[in-house]
Write a protein that binds this DNA or RNA. Sequence first.
DNA 1: CTCTTTTACGAAAACGTTTTCGGTAAAAGT
DNA 2: ACTTTTACCGAAAACGTTTTCGTAAAAGAG
Lengths: 340, 340
Amino acid sequence: MTSIRDIARVCGISVGTVSKALNGYKDVSKETVRKVNQVARELGYTPDSLARAMRTNTTHNLGVLFIDKQQSGLRHEYFSSVLESFKIGAERRGYDITFITGNVEGSPWRSYLAHCRYRKCDGVLIAGVDFKDQDVIDLANSEIPVVTIDYKYEGQPAVFSANQHDMGALTKYILYRGHRDIAFIHGEDTIVTEQRIAGFEGACREAGVTIPDDYIVEGLFHNPDRSFQATKELLNLGNPPTCILYPDDYSTIGGRNALQMLGLSVPEDISIAGYDGIMMSRVTSPTLTTLRQDSFAIGRKAVDKLIDTIEFPDEDNDEVVTVAGQLYRGGTVGQYQAKE
Amino acid sequence: MTSIRDIARVCGISVGTVSKALNGYKDVSKETVRKVNQVARELGYTPDSLARAMRTNTTHNLGVLFIDKQQSGLRHEYFSSVLESFKIGAERRGYDITFITGNVEGSPWRSYLAHCRYRKCDGVLIAGVDFKDQDVIDLANSEIPVVTIDYKYEGQPAVFSANQHDMGALTKYILYRGHRDIAFIHGEDTIVTEQRIAGFEGACREAGVTIPDDYIVEGLFHNPDRSFQATKELLNLGNPPTCILYPDDYSTIGGRNALQMLGLSVPEDISIAGYDGIMMSRVTSPTLTTLRQDSFAIGRKAVDKLIDTIEFPDEDNDEVVTVAGQLYRGGTVGQYQAKE
DNA sequence: CTCTTTTACGAAAACGTTTTCGGTAAAAGT
DNA sequence: ACTTTTACCGAAAACGTTTTCGTAAAAGAG
């Protein structure tokens, strides 16, 4: 590979001057800059990020920690979508991204933080993980700038989807359609779940509707099997709900299967709604009533916040940005009519 | 950050010995190895991949070039799925991955190859791109080991989905269901398309069925809009087909919308089939008849082949691996019955 | 006891950059 | 004719490793 040294030799000048010429320093003549650039092009020179990073102590490399509990990885459409816009934003600002993994057999690191340090990430996106995991906390408390999605660490910036507000909007819509017996199969015990339950209960309270305890059942994110089971349980109650909310669109699949198995049709016999607004929700028949998260904006805000924190560490970066989603009415929540 | 030097100072030995101790060299006493490891742990030492890479000239970093023409990026479920298994395989063998991009405004590189060189990737996965693009060809012809998916460069290893065979199987199933007037909306002019057309035509020929020219129409991969339009055109023919094949499951959405608009129901009035076997195809009603590509195996074979090429360059690595998919019968191809 | 082999370690170069600190010559000011 | 400024460039250190080569001491062989 051709290095800065080769250019120096051909031009008959020192490596220091070549470096300065390539990086636009002021103390180098117009003429040498021209010459250096020409020779660099002729020799097919590409800089070496490693050497540069070693010297400057910045890699222009962002870590991405992204391990949902269901291990769906990139197959998780909502996260993939967030990641895609994060990636595009990063590229535009000259950063590459690296996936952070923990203790993999045979790797030179033993934790997320060690992996980040090994690769010398300038900053890390943390999303979709167990935020209470000590390894994750260690990373968040380290010297490495961090941005989280849907969780807030003290002193670190965060991006939130407007879970409470949006869930409130979705619930209000369902109430507006006349439903009063609304069940909510929610996800694991996380901030997101707390916020969504708060939004759900807030909207019900506001409408003067009381929800029995056994209508609020714990399911799992991104897990159709669990939704299948939880749906069956709900329908075995003395007074089954007329509408069921699921942790996300993907889990809804399981719920739908359960309903079909029981011979119930949507939305005639029972109504359902998801959350996320993934592609799939738009192509079922009828289309799924859901709340579309603005995954594009979330990824974009996250990467901008992260890079700002990296490049301008002096400014106030302990901030939380909230991104609102959009209600999609779909066709799975019917107008409620009292049974005869 | 604590470096090898710190360990050396604490132990009272030289950095070279520390390095050797940590890397399991034989010419260092049991006792010093123990001491070094202990001190390393106490000081929270993590190696610096940059310095290591600089010296050894290997980064343990794989590039991923992955730009479908429709710019779906990670939102492309089939590719995401391949990538996920590629990534997992890479991690298990101690490699990280970096997305390769071309000419982004403000980046220090101007081409895919330059980006790979800048980041000193040990090898690159090339998939889903325009393989005739000069920038891609330059990369494939470079000093960097490469593996391609669904395309073969001379002298480089490749992984193929069994497109011709699998498309043959899908077509045979449709013929078996009694259809004779089968149209094929195929994707862009690529090897994949060639192979699939070959598989399609081969099966028809074998069954003694002749397909009129205007039944084979050029569509676009991963583009429902184009499928929407092409479907309408097919149904405007004098003798419209009784079954339509699409470039992939995702494009099928457009076709379905067109059929619905025309008041045709699937599979009663007309049959359709997709390709890929993405999640979505399993949740529509009826489920989509399609050919499930084994994305997991494809990603896995690709990464293994690539790393083998990197680590054992002497062996024969100009090889092509073929991965078969699986026919999923679904419910969108009905038994054909002659119209009255 | 002498010679050879083995064991364990250190010194130092190298990887490709960036950046500081001078330094020299020409240009400008007095 | 002197000093001061300006413009341009080079030498060298530094970043954290790996790895070669040399060597001193210990161990083994005769």
